[in-house]
């Protein structure tokens, strides 16, 4: 009875006043703004987190892959004059390309020796090249196709990859024809896809102070077969 009566009462009430509407509208807008702000913050945080996760995953994969290849790097065998595949860091303005000879799981017909190389193209893509032949030049390695050669995409959104190879005496060189370096310091500048979508020609003049959306990763790889 009470509900019926109340219903009757309510249906019989007049509409809201303009003031009530205005107040309610203001409150709604404020709440909407607050909600929007919260959502925006959440969105930003999620994007940043997602971007960071993407960069870190990429960094882990890249370092893991390169490190495993470096671990199998084969040293000089004196008497041949020089390494069949000298360890090389081909420096460019933006990224370094790397190339060396390594030992991979043996294949019955191709053996276990391989030349591997890494380079970053102009589209911020990091490639890994491999051939079971001895190649001392990255251009030759990447240009050759078919057979045992392949060039595969390892990661995207790579702003730059730089390498510093250190010899036993502490000097840094870009080519090691007679001995492997002792360590290689790898510096990786990674962006996420959104950042590069917004800034496709992104460059980082100062790696120590990267812009938002770009993260610096560093690792040092020691050569087990170093002299």
């Amino acid at each position: 009875m009470f509900s019926m009566r109340a219903s009757v009462v309510r249906t019989g009430e007049r509409a809201f006043t303009i003031l009530e509407l205005l107040v309610s509208a203001v409150i709604f807008v404020i709440m909407l703004a607050l909600l929007g702000s919260v959502i925006m913050h959440f969105n930003t945080a999620w994007r940043q987190g997602d971007a960071q996760k993407e960069r870190r995953q990429n960094a882990r994969v890249i370092f893991d892959t390169i490190s495993r290849d470096l671990q199998g790097a084969v040293p000089t065998l004196p008497g041949t004059g020089a390494n069949r595949v000298p360890f090389q860091v081909q420096q460019t303005n933006n990224s370094d390309a790397l190339l060396w000879g390594t030992s991979l799981p043996a294949n019955r017909t191709r053996g276990d020796f391989a030349t591997v190389g890494y380079f970053v193209d102009s589209q911020n893509r990091l490639y890994r090249c491999q051939t079971n032949a001895a190649e001392s030049d990255l251009d030759t390695l990447t240009a050759s196709a078919g057979g045992s050669n392949f060039t595969g995409l390892l990661a995207e959104n790579v702003v730059s990859l730089t390498a510093t190879a250190v010899a036993r005496d502490g000097s840094t060189n870009t080519i090691f024809t007679t001995n492997l370096p002792v360590t290689v310091d790898l510096t990786l500048l990674l962006a996420d896809w959104r950042t590069l979508k917004q800034k496709p020609n992104l460059t980082v003049p100062d790696p120590s102070n990267p812009p938002v959306g770009v993260q610096v990763f560093r690792t040092r790889v020691e050569f087990p077969a170093a002299p």
């Binding site: 069949r84 030992s103 294949n107 019955r108 017909t109 191709r110 020796f113 032949a133």
Partner: peptide, 22 residues
Amino acid sequence: TNAFITPYDALGRDSSWTNGLF
């Protein structure tokens, strides 16, 4: 000419060597 620098380096040098060396 070029010393073998991995245990199975020789396998990939010449296909006619593969079976014997393997």
